[in-house]
């Protein structure tokens, strides 16, 4: 019985990824590309993705921007507020490496240094379809328990 329930919960993790997006000093390019994901053309709702307003309702965190010194505490805060299991998707080059801002004294430069990142979507900015694909991939990771939040808990 409990097996059926855990199977059901795993499936529902794949079927209903709720998304929260945080701008950590981005130029807004990636954020503009997130908006079409939920527009009539690409419609994230067909895979169950909904843009949520509160990090507490979220499964997948979309992070854009090179993590400036001012935002790094907030990014950490938002990540901790998301109830596990959770996945983090780094949008574009900025959270991966700092992009053109690399070496600037006002940025951390890598989301990896602040929170564990599960997926990197290359592009500057990535296309909406790439973002949707990443959301799908992340929800499959959530189902299989492959996200870093799930793996690190199970190691303890």
């Amino acid at each position: 019985m409990s097996n059926i329930f855990s199977r059901l919960i795993q499936t529902s993790r794949r079927r209903s990824p709720w998304v929260y997006r945080i701008n950590a000093g981005s130029c807004n390019g990636c954020d503009i590309e997130v908006a079409p994901c939920f527009s009539p053309r690409y419609d994230g709702e067909q895979i169950g993705a909904v843009l949520q307003g509160s990090p507490k309702h979220t499964d997948i965190l979309l992070i854009s921007g090179p993590i400036t010194l001012r935002t790094q505490e907030m990014v950490k805060d938002v990540y901790q507020q998301i109830p596990s299991p959770k996945a983090v998707i780094a949008l574009g080059s900025c959270p991966a490496s700092g992009n053109v801002f690399h070496g600037s004294p006002t940025i951390v430069g890598s989301a990896e240094a602040v929170i564990p990142v599960d997926l990197y979507v290359p592009g500057c900015p990535p296309r909406p379809q790439a973002i949707l694909e990443a959301i799908q991939k992340a929800s499959v990771m959530l189902e299989k328990g492959e996200t870093r939040s799930q793996r690190e808990v199970s190691h303890e």
């Binding site: 529902s12 079927r15 209903s16 009539p40 419609d43 709702e45 067909q46 169950g48």
Partner: peptide, 20 residues
């Protein structure tokens, strides 16, 4: 838009049950 599949609210509920 296309809209969510038929079982969406059902899975939304069960996913929330499975979260910490």
């Amino acid at each position: 838009r296309q809209g969510p599949p038929f079982y969406q609210p059902f899975f939304d509920f069960w996913k929330l049950i499975g979260k910490k």
